[in-house]
């Protein structure tokens, strides 16, 4: 579904990504692990067309490198930004509406689905999103992107700073997303959740992929975990 090869990205003069290669298959859940600042967020932003990048990005067999972010989104790629980037002055309902690409909702997800998964959001449907708790805002960012019915959703650090109970809710949502045939590319810090829900994992270091394998491979490889993941 997604094939990234030899991806380079730059912020001004600094070279952030040094030839990243990764793939995500149909309906697959893949995690991208690594410490802060190794280029995981930049990788998915580059795929999304939000930072200047060189290299090839193919989605459903079609080259999408060089397209603008809104064009990439229309190809069926969803992006969930980190930091719970909701629209604070708009209501929960309006935030969800903006996730839709047209005025009519047709596809895998409806607003009722979102409210069934997260009843809290329904209770707060007409509240300004800025006053929601951190966990609720994270749910909202995820749901907002899902309303656009992506075929692959890239999620940036969703569990950072959230209570274990909410992380558990999100884990259930990831499984639900996957069950509906949507592929996931998850950027995570927490090894436990990534090992549990992913079919494959990548580990990044210094702007490159330094490990690729299944959760079992990573569990067995203490050297990689020690060098690139553990603090």
């Amino acid at each position: 579904m997604l094939e990234v090869s030899d991806l380079h990205a730059f912020y001004g003069k600094s070279h952030i990504l040094h030839g990243v290669n990764l793939t995500v298959g149909d309906g697959e859940c893949v995690s991208l692990l690594g410490r802060n600042g190794v280029g995981r967020s930049t990788t998915i932003k580059a795929v999304m067309g939000m930072v200047d990048a060189k290299g090839s990005v193919k989605f459903k067999g079609e080259e999408i490198g060089g397209l603008k972010a809104y064009q990439v989104a229309h190809k069926g790629l969803g992006y969930v930004p980190e930091n719970r980037d909701i629209f604070p002055t708009l209501t929960v309902h309006q935030n969800l509406l903006l996730g839709m690409k047209g005025t009519k909702q047709s596809g895998r997800w409806s607003m009722d689905d979102m409210f069934r998964l997260f009843p809290r959001l329904q209770e707060r449907e007409h509240t300004a999103a800025g006053v929601l708790s951190g966990g609720e805002q994270q749910m909202l960012t995820l749901c907002r992107t899902l309303m656009g019915d992506p075929d692959l959703v890239m999620i940036d650090e969703p569990t950072e700073g959230l209570a274990p109970k909410i992380v558990e809710l999100l884990r259930e949502l990831f499984i639900e997303i996957n069950r509906r045939g949507v592929s996931i590319l998850l950027v995570e810090q927490k090894l436990a959740i990534a090992l549990e829900i992913s079919q494959r994992l990548y580990v990044m270091g210094h702007g490159q992929i330094v490990f690729e394998g299944t959760p079992e491979d990573l569990r067995a490889n203490a050297a990689i975990r020690k060098e690139w993941l553990e603090v």
Binding site: M48, A69, Y70, A73, H74, Y79, D85, F87, T89, T145
Partner: peptide, 25 residues
């Protein structure tokens, strides 16, 4: 209106709005 919502959201978060598929330019 929908375009009004897009404008309101793009006032503060243009990149996020664009990543959702709206033609921000």
């Amino acid at each position: 209106t929908r375009i009004g919502l897009v404008i309101q959201a793009a006032l503060t978060h243009p990149d996020t709005v664009e990543a959702l598929g709206h033609n921000v330019p």
